[in-house]
Computed example of a mutant assay.
Amino acid sequence: MRQQLFTSLNTKMKHRYCYGGSLRNSAKGRAARPLSTKDPIHLVLKINKTTVKGGLRNPYAFRLMNIVLKRYALKFFVKVEQFSIQNDHVHLLIRGTRRSKLQSFFRVVPGQFAQNLTDTLKTKGKERIWKYRPFTRVVKGFKAYQIVRDYIQLNECEANGRPYSKTRLRGLTQKQRQELWEFRMRPTT
Rank of each mutant, 00 (worst) to 15 (best):
A114R: 13
L102G: 10
R95M: 06
V138I: 07
L93H: 14
S100P: 00
R63K: 10
Y132K: 02
Y151W: 00
V139N: 04
L102E: 13
R137W: 02
S100V: 15
A144E: 04
D119L: 10
N66K: 13
F105A: 07
R137K: 14
L117W: 14
S84P: 01
T123C: 07
V44Y: 14
R99E: 11
F106K: 03
Y145G: 01
G54V: 07
N87R: 01
N87E: 07
I129M: 06
L154Y: 10
I94C: 06
Q112Y: 13
R71I: 04
G141I: 00
Q112C: 02
R107L: 13
K126W: 07
H89V: 01
Q112H: 08
T51D: 04
H42Y: 14
L121I: 07
N58T: 05
G54L: 07
K131Q: 15
Y72T: 08
G54K: 11
R71L: 11
G55D: 03
A61I: 08
K131N: 11
N87Q: 00
F105W: 15
E81G: 15
F142Y: 00
D88E: 06
E127S: 09
P59W: 00
K49P: 04
R128N: 12
H42Q: 03
R98V: 11
T51M: 02
G96V: 03
R63S: 08
E81W: 02
H89T: 08
R95K: 09
N155I: 08
Y151I: 02
G55Q: 02
T51A: 08
W130V: 00
R63H: 05
V139L: 02
D119G: 05
L154F: 12
T136V: 12
R137N: 11
D150H: 05
I47G: 08
L117D: 00
